[in-house]
Amino acid sequence: MRTLLRRLGFYLLAGFAAVTLNFFLARLLPGSALQNALAKLRGANLDPAAIRALEAQYGTGADHSLPSQYLTYLSGLLHGDLGLSTSQSAPVSSILGSTLPWTLGLVGTATALAFVVGTLAGIVVGWKRNGLLDGLLPAATFFQSVPYFILAFLVMMTLGYFGGFFPYQNGYDIGRHAHLTPGWNGPFVTSVIEHGTLPALTVVLASLAGWVIGMRNMMITTMDEDYVLVAAAKGLPQWRVAAVAARNAILPTISNFALSISLVVTGSLVTEIVFTYPGVGWQIYQAILTGDYPLLQGILLVVVFTVLAVNLVADLAYVALDPRARKEA
C-alpha cells in the first residue's frame, strides 16, 4: 500500500509539472492565439476596445500578468475548464469530449492488439528459436522502422485506395447515401469498425515488431535460467515449461510497455491525420494550422495524462506480476 501511495504521489507531481510546462510553453510561442484567429476574419472590423473585450473573455490580455493567468488556468483546470478554442469558438473540453472517444477507441484497441499478438508471437518465436518464424522478424522490423506517416500512406494506398478492401477516410460512413445514427446500433458500429481497421492496422504494424522482438529476446535469455531447466527436468509438458519461461520473460516487457506507449500515442495522432480520422490527432493538426493554442494546450494535456495513466497501470501490473517488486511481505 505504501508503495502504491508513493507511486501515486510521483504521478501527481509529474502531472503537475506537465500542466505547468504546458501552460508556459504555449505562452512562450510567438503570436497570440486570439490574433491568429482574428487575422483570419478579414472582413471583421474590430476596434481596440472590442479586441480588449475579447482578450478579457479569453483571458489572454496584457492586463493579466503571467502568474495571474497561470492561477486562473489552474483553477479552471480543477473545474474541468480548459478554456475556449479560438478557432472554433467552443469550450476545449467539449471539443475533446467529442473527439477523445474516437482516439481512445482506436489507440486503445490497436495498442492492446499489438501488445497481445506481439507478445504471444514473441513467446512462440523465442521458444522455437531458429524456427521458420524467425524469418518473419525482418519483415516486422521493416514495418517498425518505416515512419508512421509513410506506413499510414502505404496502408491507405494499398488496402484502401487501390485495394478497396476498407474505407480509408473518416470515422464512419458520412457519405450521401449513408443513413447512420451514431450510437450503439449495428450498422453504425459495423461502419466504425470498418473505418477503424486501416488506422488500427497501421498502429499495429508499426508497433508489433517491438513487442515481438522484445519478448523473443527476453524469452531466449530467460530460457537459459536454471528454473526453466528445472521445469524441464521435472518432466512437465512442453507448454508448461514454456509458460514458466514466458511468465518471467514478460516482466521487462511490462516496463517497456510504459516506455513505448507515448510513442504509440504520438504515432497514432499522425495516423489519424492521414486517415482523416475524427480523433484528437486530426484536431491537433487543425489547432496547429489555425494557431489555436488553447485547443493545442488542452490536447497536449490529455495526451500527457493518458501517458501518465498508462504508466501507472503498467506500474501496478508490474507490482501485481512480480512478487519481488512488492516491498511488504
Binding site: D226, Y227, V230, A231, A233, G235, L236, V244
Partner: peptide, 25 residues
C-alpha cells in the same frame, strides 16, 4: 518416455537454489 522418467525416477538438485526456483511462483 523421457518426460515420464524425469523427476518421477531421476530428479535433479541444481547448484544454485537461488536460480533454480522460479522467482514468481
Amino acid at each position: 518416455t523421457l518426460r515420464r522418467v524425469r523427476w518421477d525416477q531421476i530428479s535433479v538438485v541444481f547448484q544454485s537454489a537461488m536460480h533454480a526456483l522460479n522467482p514468481v511462483a
